[in-house]
Write a protein that binds this DNA or RNA. Sequence first.
RNA 1: CGGGCAGUAGCGCAGUCUGGCUAGCGCACCAGCUUUGGGAGCUGGGGGUCGUGGGUUCGAAUCCCACCUGCCCGACCA
Length: 569
Amino acid sequence: MRLSTIPLATLREDPADAEVPSHRLLARAGYIQKIAAGIYVYSPLMWRTLRKVSNIVREELEREGAHEILMPILQPKEIWEQSGRWARYLAEGLMFHMVDKRGSEVCLGPTHEEVVTTYIKRIIKSYKQLPINVYQIQDKFRDEIRPRFGLMRGREFLMKDAYSFDIDEAGLDASYRAMDRAYRRIFERCGLAFRAVEADSGAIGGSGSQEFMVLAETGEDAILYCEESGYAANVEKATSIITATPDGGAPKELEKHETPGIKTVDQLVQFFGMEAARMAKTVIYNATYADRVEPIAVMMRGDLEINEVKLCGIVDALAVGLADEETVKRVTGADVGFAGPIGLQGNVRLIADLTLEGATNLLTGCCETGYHCLNVNPGRDCPKPDYRDVRLARAGERSPDDKGALVETRGIEVGHIFKLGTKYSSAMDATFIAEDGKPTPFVMGCYGIGVSRTAASAVEQNHDDSGIVWPRPIAPFEVVVAILDAKRSEQVELGEKLYTELVAAGIDTCLDDRKMSPGAKFKDLDLLGFPLRVVVGRRAGEWMVEFSHRATGDKADILAAEVLDRVRT
RNA sequence: CGGGCAGUAGCGCAGUCUGGCUAGCGCACCAGCUUUGGGAGCUGGGGGUCGUGGGUUCGAAUCCCACCUGCCCGACCA
């Protein structure tokens, strides 16, 4: 490819709306152009990189026996009603949807469980045809609440999604492990530093899941890991071992104390001179279900934090969030800041963290403005709460296997693998005839990779002050041959010759034959980030060129005849 | 959806507070001459519904109202 022939406009200044390096650099180097919020054109160079990522994905999935298909973007409401997700996705405002000429409702696919389940169930009738794993690489559409960071969170983005169908859980385990292997090879081949972590399965549902995180400062997810044991999890999911809750002693008589204006744990520590670990804060949440919103009271040790993702899973809600002031007043009968397990109105569900199980003589709110209670003993003074793990794990705490301390880092989620089980196959009546002759729902798994996000995260992880430094396997071109002065025939001739030879040798090469000043060309090529650069300049007459590596900046004048060898090593 | 901010040339911005003449600057673009190894110089040139609609006024980029779009901070996900 000749750079002079492609639409390419690099910007000298950073785009005003770009915050993270990948967005800033991809936009400035002309790889992407924004058409609307979260919607981008991929330039020829960007598309080459996306195709390279896609091809690595294809090779590694096919190696594990998956087969590529292409499913429709436009999907009918009916199949989403079968799975029960139409209302949910609409309610969450996640889905682009519209009404066609006939009045039928359709959506732009945010994911493809419904389509693939429909597809497979009509074809696969017998256990003898299983297992099956199909995948596609295609644009997905999600009406994100806040698109941001360029390709990191778009409303239309390129994604690989794979779906496995198995006879039973053991089969699913094998399919899941195959995808785990494939994913590790994929991200390794892309040249990325990543970590696989335990994850919450969220909106997709299912039993187990793992996320693949590219490590980057700007990552939107926090992850905790243990160097000693290899434990790694998204903070949403992470558990830890912490110091035991201090013993409260034998239950004492309940006391009510006037605490005017005292609302926070810190203030209570001051006021009562009692350590925060012996307090239980009670937080009122609203849990949203398909048909209702229900308040929930959650008790947590005063020095610890509530993990809302865990809470959402425990109460099996679509979403949970802090209750508004009005709800708090209604549920507790008191101002915000005085909620407690005692005196909750109506039948509010009470959940307490495991760290509070067996704790005695706690300090809590007592649902009365201006008062707190001492020596609260759950089960005696209030209904016995449902003890569950709702605690947010934190760096510095012990890994759940007790082999070391947890360390926090940030990551970009580029892949996610799920064991779905029979959630969709049961709901959509997708069955096969098992060996015993009975109709049996498929045991499914689903496996996603954000292809465009992977490319962006590669930039996030590989750049310097001058621009992008593409990992070689996914660079738009491995080598650029740059003609410095297009007016000098010996430079043009040598550049053309080298370009032709490299291409003929199967090296992924482009020719920078653009007419621009040498300084501008150097800056531009640094910004574009091709791994290897061959400059045909003033020594072209002696068949000498400059060979350099973008990543290290190492440069050497070499004979033109040596270029091919250098590129191959 | 809540809170904050912003829309002026392809990009980055000034001008708006305090209304006034032909709406400016840098980059990019076009032409010519010079230059030619780290974003080159000079000269000339093209490009604008000042987000949209309404209002106030002799006069609106500037003041008022509504709407649209985008950005940033919070609940989602590949």
